[in-house]
Nucleic acid binder design. Structure first.
Lengths: 340, 340
DNA sequence: AACGTTATCGGGAACGTTGCCGATAGCGCA
DNA sequence: TGCGCTATCGGCAACGTTCCCGATAACGTT
């Protein structure tokens, strides 16, 4: 392998390791000629400082851990994209952990990250996670933590999220403006932060337009497979039937669309549909699907920037806060106003 | 932070560090009672061995580098999913690098991975990469390397790919069976391995059915934005017009579908369309799109398994080989046989 | 002439862990 | 009694790097 060390250089040039070390870092107390010699020789041998030795000495790894439910998911893969870009520019590398929506694996991943000595942690909570004491304890021990997307107000940490309330409010109002009155809301487990914020936005829009909130129109998914069909059936069985669906995720939006198609309901004639999503093929769906776009990449970028600030400035960094990144509503055919 | 070391335990228990070390690893030459004491104390203090110190000592990092063009891409995010799952079970962590389809960044990423002292490298080549001497040199220095998906026969390394030839052959034959004769092929840069294999499968299917290969029906994309529309236009301007499109990637398939829709061509009545893709929403597109499914996750899993074998058994591992994972053709509405 | 200063470099410890080599005591056996 | 063996443990070096403390010589200053 590659193994040229500072010792090799020292031996070859008949110098001590300390001199070589200082020459390489350009210390002022090394003779210019000596510096040149060392630099040239190091260059010629393609010397690269060993980051592991550095880590041991400085007690830091220049690595940040990223814990997400799933990589193979539009939102998270884009967020990781943003994270990676910033992190590498700042000299950190990114270690990925997946929880697969399991609380248990989240805890295990967290411990793994700790024993890997990551300098900081970026976390999007699993859907099973309601208790965050594991994170609070870690934070109390001094580990910099930033939450993104799936956050928890139980934790006094910086949190970076889409403006879920506003996004949901706009989506719901958009449906109302297009003439719908019975708007169903398909969402994810109720104890999750994003669920509550989106639900609140949904309710606020209904209220603003004088539509009573009907809890029978709200269904909570569990990330299980094949669960969307029955939920949609159940909602459609009501009388009067819902005339619009507002879904809270990529997965639910696609599943809902499939379920509606299977049941031969015309979109947007029979029901309208709008999702909270990042799918870049939403435009190509049948019909083109209206969406509230979450700025996944930007969320990742902002989150990692805050984390690095936390790592490098420690107690001097900005106090914990909640950062909301605006969403964008894109109206397409699935929510077109239908004139009778 | 967490910092309990083997020294702390030794001091507290009035033992030497070596004894503690051996007790922790269950060495036979340590008194059972002493072992118990050490184990219990370590447990109580939540001792975790410092992997950085281990890495320095053993000259290995228990990390594998994964270099891909893009994380935010169906295929690669699923592949990384598979990689992550296996790697963690085997005690390795995964460090992600993105080339963004740039040769230059690929080289830089490779160097970064090396200076991070990864134990092995998993690479899917950028579309710009035609020269692989940077990888060959690294390999010559003893770094275990496994290529996946975007591979190169210039490198004597284990390569894990989808069965591109067979997949393309089946897709083309499927189009022929559905009654098409002028089958256009939208693909990616010609020097890439997957391009050539898919093109060969396409040609072989044409030949088998007595259809002359027409190079005017083949177009090579460059991963640039908004390039698909003009390519499609150009193809459609021919006389006679193509009656089917076979695309070589997720991006091209979606772009082609959008372009055809924009030009008001009916699918499958006017033209058929089949893609090489992993999009799980292909069924929801308009119309539902036929696809050749690449087993992304399995490719990742197999690749990382081979890499770990290479890392741990070194010269004793299996010699380099090309492993082909079968694809699956899913016929949907976009290639339905149209009766005139 | 004695001293302080400056420029330039080396020695050694330390980060946390493991492994080699020894050291000690207790014991059995001839 | 003396020898060797086993069981049990400690000391030390090493991995690659940085940093603190000295060391040395060549000066200038009083």
């Amino acid at each position: 392998m590659d193994n040229v060390t500072i010792k090799d250089i020292a031996k070859a040039l008949n110098l001590s390791t300390s001199t070589v070390s200082r020459a390489l870092r350009g210390s002022y107390e090394i003779n210019a000629e000596t510096k040149r010699l060392v630099m040239e020789y190091a260059e010629r041998l393609n010397y690269r400082p060993n980051p592991i030795a550095l880590s041991l000495k400085e007690n830091r790894s220049r690595a940040i851990g990223v814990i997400v439910p799933q990589i193979a998911n539009y939102f998270f893969s884009q967020a990781i994209n943003g994270i990676e870009a910033i992190a590498y520019n700042r000299g950190y590398h990114v270690i990925i952990f997946q929880t697969h929506e399991s609380y248990e694996r989240e805890v295990v991943n967290m411990q793994q990250a700790v024993s890997r000595r990551v300098d900081g942690l970026l976390i999007s909570l699993s859907s099973e996670t309601s208790d965050v004491t594991h994170l609070r304890e870690l934070q109390d021990q001094g580990m910099p933590i930033v939450l993104f997307d799936r956050v928890s107000s139980e934790l006094n940490a910086t949190q970076v999220v889409a403006d879920n309330f506003k996004g949901a409010f706009e989506a719901t109002e958009h449906l109302i403006w297009s003439g719908r009155r019975r708007i169903a809301h398909l969402t994810i487990p109720p104890y999750m932060s994003i669920t509550q914020e989106r639900l609140a936005g949904y309710r606020a829009a209904l209220e603003k337009h004088g539509i009573a909130y009907d809890e029978n129109l709200v269904r909570y998914g569990t990330f299980g497979p094949d669960e969307v069909g029955p939920m949609v059936d159940d909602l459609l069985a009501q009388n009067p039937r819902p005339d619009a669906f507002f879904t809270a995720s990529d997965r639910l939006a696609a599943g809902c669309l499939g379920a509606l198609q299977k049941r031969k309901l015309r979109i947007p004639e029979d029901v309208a549909l709008i999702g909270f999503t990042n799918m870049n093929v939403a435009e190509l769906l049948s019909p083109p699907m209206s969406t509230v776009v979450q700025p996944a990449q930007e969320i990742g970028q902002v989150a990692v920037e805050r984390l690095i600030e936390l790592i490098e400035r420690k107690q001097k960094a900005a106090p914990p806060s909640v950062i909301k990144i605006p969403t964008t509503l894109i109206a397409r055919d699935s929510t077109r106003t239908v004139v009778e």
